[in-house]
Amino acid sequence: MKSLLVLLLVPFFMTQTATVEVVKWEGLEKALANKNGKIKVVNFWITGCKTCVEELPHFEQLHRSFGNQVEVILVNLDKESIEETKVNPLLEKNRITAKVFLLNESDQNTWINKVEPSWSGAIPATVIIDQNNHRRLYEKSLTYAELVKIIHDIHKP
C-alpha cells in the first residue's frame, strides 16, 4: 500500500516546478565542477531579458528529453529581492523542472572570466561543458534543434 502511494506520487513530484537555490559564486562553481559524467548546459538569464525568457523552454525540453546524459543548469542573475515576485512565477509559467540557481553576486567582474574567459558578459549566453571540462561559449540565443545538435556533436568520437 505504501509503495503504491509512492508510485502514485512520483510523477507528481517529477513535474513540480524547480525551486530556486540562491548561491554565491563558490556554490555555482561547485555545481559546474561536479563530475557526474553528464554534459553540463549552463544558461545565464534574467526575467527582464526577452530573448533569454523565450529560450528557457528549449533548455527545459533538453532537460526532459536528455536528462540522463545532460545536466541543464539555469543560472538566474536577477536581484534576490525579486525572486518571489518575478523569478518564481516565470518558472511556474514555463513549468521549469531543470535545476535553477540564483547567483547572488553583485560584482560580476569577479566571476565572468571564471565561467569562461571569452565571454564578454552579454546575455543571452550559454556555456556547454563536456565531460573533459572543455567549455564552449554561445553568446546568443539557442533553439532546441541547435542544442540537440551541439550535444550530438560532443558525443561524436
Binding site: 545565464f44 534574467i46 531579458c49 530573448t51 542573475l77 560580476q108 567582474n109 565572468i112 572570466n113 565571454w119 564578454s120 558578459g121 552579454a122 546575455i123 543571452p124 549566453a125 553568446e139 546568443k140
Partner: peptide, 9 residues
C-alpha cells in the same frame, strides 16, 4: 578592463 553582465546588442 572589467566585465559586467549586459544585454547583447
Amino acid at each position: 578592463e572589467t566585465k559586467a553582465i549586459g544585454c547583447s546588442i
